[in-house]
Write a protein that binds this DNA or RNA. Structure first.
Lengths: 239, 239
DNA sequence: GCCGATTTGTCCGTATGTATC
DNA sequence: CGATACATACGGACAAATCGG
């Protein structure tokens, strides 16, 4: 594993901001001071700072310094950035029991309609999986996953019922490097209503996602339909 | 204006990908070749490539090359990244007439509840603006904006009815550099229903946002409540 | 399986530009 | 104006992953 220096510095500074060593609206020590204390080059330090800026932890100001803009107990974007908490993470944090029920598992050939919806080439062989994921027995989301069959050999309904990602990373040594996402709100379908107990809501939050592996191949399209309660997507935008 | 070399290269490569000079799944020329053709250093070129990777245009592969992962006519995240199209942009693209109606414009002092909701310090003087924005007479979103009064001197309801950002950038020379966002789905309030013609929907898509200016001061909190139709938020996540 | 060539990833030192104070 | 601090850019060195012979 290539433990990069900038990664260490990034984590160290992030921790110091979170624990209050550098607090909201304060300035970090200057780049020169930090390069001395970390014993690294200015480029390496600046890379770590740039990552903190991408996370909206700091904001560098030309000619002035690097100001901390992170504060505790923020309602907006306090959790993990660019994403909903993963199902497992959320379950763990809330001491809830996560379960996954596989409703469908089949191989399909990508037709024109599916191709334009998912971004897979027409004619691709895909594995379609529909799953309902619950916490403490309460259904929270319906996943519609399409995997490029050639990219996920050996995928079974049993694996789909636990963690596909653990299988991909552990067994196939595949990582998701890039994923494009689109968030919309849609009227709940009969299927949504039958799986999720929507209560007063007649809509679901939908995240569509195209994921690319380390070979630059799009191997997964997912459409996750969330119960509106507890759905929250946090992100940061910079110019 | 500092025209950075890496910016030029970034735009040039981006254009060449969009027009098909480098097409989906192909590799870019090697870094060495590109540094020669652009006449720049490897660091500068790599910065441009890194920005393209942040936009999910390419995916660099260690020891192999840089693969293009952008394709035309993508349903997911083809528009502007990390954002909804701004109101003006959307209107222009659709040849629609944008209008803004200011429903409320008042100065308030930030109490404890508002402070925890918005992230402003308790006791701050804020300007609260409620606006309804329409296209061709059809209301599409309700904006609840809170500005730090000291940061937006001279803001008037008239300015709020056109473009606050043009005022901030043009008159006050202020830019938004960082903004944190949170996307949720909420039951429509009576106010939502009275302004938006929600049809069958009983929910709205809500984007909360905290914006920081170039001085690292949070000067704006907004909660924009969108009609579900035509609401779409595109983003990219990388690891 | 090994080895060398290619290609991207990380890191350094230095120089110069530009905004702020 | 000078001093400080961040921004950009260059060139070089070595590491790590990939690929072909």
């Amino acid at each position: 594993m290539p433990k990069a220096i900038y990664e260490d510095i990034y984590r160290d500074l992030k921790g110091k901001i979170q624990e209050g060593t550098y607090s909201y609206q304060e300035f970090l020590p200057t780049e020169n001071e930090l390069t001395v204390s970390y014993g690294c080059s200015r480029n390496t330090l600046r890379r770590a700072i740039s990552m903190l800026a991408d996370d909206a932890y700091v904001q560098p100001m030309h000619g002035r310094g690097v100001r901390v803009i992170w504060q505790r107990d923020q309602r907006v974007a306090q959790g993990s950035l660019d994403g909903v908490e993963s199902f497992g993470e959320y379950a763990k944090r809330n001491d809830a029991q996560p379960t996954t029920s596989v409703k469908s598992f089949e191989q399909v050939t990508c037709g024109a309609g599916l191709a334009s919806r998912t971004g897979f080439p027409e004619g691709s062989e895909l594995i379609r999986v529909v799953r309902v994921r619950s916490l403490n027995g309460v259904a929270r989301q319906v996943d519609h996953d399409y995997f490029l069959a050639s990219a996920v050999p050996g995928l079974t309904p049993e694996i789909a019922s636990t963690s596909v990602y653990r299988y991909l990373e552990g067994q196939l040594n595949m990582r998701i490097l890039t994923s494009r996402r689109r968030i919309t709100v849609q009227l709940a379908t009969d299927e949504d209503c039958s799986y999720l107990n929507l209560g007063p809501y007649n809509c679901v939050a939908v995240i569509e996602s195209q994921s690319y592996n380390s070979a630059g191949i799009m191997f997964e399209y997912t459409q996750v339909r969330h119960h509106p309660e507890e759905f929250s997507y946090n992100t940061v935008s910079r110019r």
